[in-house]
């Protein structure tokens, strides 16, 4: 499988001239070689440390840029812009504004672990993707992704009861993301299942919706986990300089810079 890499020549950097005549020769058109020169001044020197301080990002410093992660990536095969190697490079060099161009797709990592399997340097790129997605949300660069919302609905149930009940999670997730419960594929699925009259299963499902499953004596585990989450959250916010709740100004300006970039890209 070839390594899919994004083109370094971006559309918005291509110069277009409608009436360019040089030495009597008409050379009008798109010129990808006339790239505007660019000086990077907005390095975020703390970026690598920030990602490394979030769960999953710990080993980012080990990366050798071999590209095995991108080559093996499940999502990259569907979308060539999904490029873990490139993002690791951007994070390590502090090119935050470049990284933010891809902020809306980083959460799409499906955790298949192919990258972690092939990585010769034990970077665990899958973990780095999760840490980066987490960072984007903590810094306010992206809203919570559907994946994060799902993780939250799921984890909330586990932490509260010790076990999950799937239909409750599906309902909770659809509600949180404003999707209708009656999606055509879901009704078809239910119809195909129930026409075979699986009475035992129907009884079992009804039972677990009413008497939701719970681990006995879970309360103390719940409290221990909740304390730990607060402890970690405080640690992460401190690391990212977010512990002062009254600092919307630098973040907002950062957001504006990003959206201008995105507009330019579009």
């Amino acid at each position: 499988m070839p390594i899919h890499e994004k083109s370094l020549i971006r559309e918005e950097n291509i110069r277009t001239r409608d009436d360019l005549v040089i030495d009597g020769v008409d050379v009008s058109g798109h010129w990808s070689t006339f790239i505007e020169s660019r000086v990077v001044t907005d390095y975020n020197e703390d970026l690598e440390d920030q990602i490394a301080g979030l769960p999953g990002g710990e080993n980012i410093h080990r990366c050798w840029q071999c590209g095995s992660c991108t080559n093996s990536c499940t999502v990259n095969a569907l979308n060539a812009d999904f490029n873990p190697r490139y993002w690791i490079y951007l994070i390590r060099t502090g090119m935050e504004s470049e990284l933010l161009r891809d902020k809306d797709i980083i959460w799409q990592c499906v955790s298949c672990n192919k990258c972690t399997y092939v990585c010769p340097r034990e970077v665990a790129p899958e973990g780095v993707m999760k840490a980066t997605a987490h960072w984007l949300e903590l810094m306010g660069h992206t809203p919570k992704s559907p994946s994060t919302l799902f993780d939250e609905v799921f984890s909330e149930q586990v932490i509260k009861r010790g076990k999950i009940e799937e239909s409750g999670i599906i309902r909770g997730f659809f509600k949180k993301t404003g999707q209708p419960l009656m999606q055509n594929w879901l009704t078809t699925m239910a119809f195909r299942l129930f026409k075979k009259l699986p009475f035992g299963m129907m009884f079992h499902m009804a039972k677990s919706t009413i008497f939701r499953p719970k681990t006995k004596g879970w309360r103390k585990s719940q409290l221990a986990i909740e304390d730990y989450i607060i402890e970690q959250d405080t640690k992460h916010r401190k690391l990212l300089g977010l512990d002062k709740p009254t600092s919307p100004t630098p973040q907002a300006s950062n957001d504006n810079a990003t959206s201008t970039l995105v507009e330019a890209a579009e």
Partner: peptide, 25 residues
């Protein structure tokens, strides 16, 4: 006896160590 959820693919995204705790229990 009295088992709990292992955390599946979701709890690790909140924090991998909580997932390890769930499995260890």
């Amino acid at each position: 006896k009295n088992w709990n959820c292992c955390g599946a693919m979701e709890v690790k995204n909140i924090d991998p160590k909580i997932q390890t705790y769930l499995s260890s229990r």
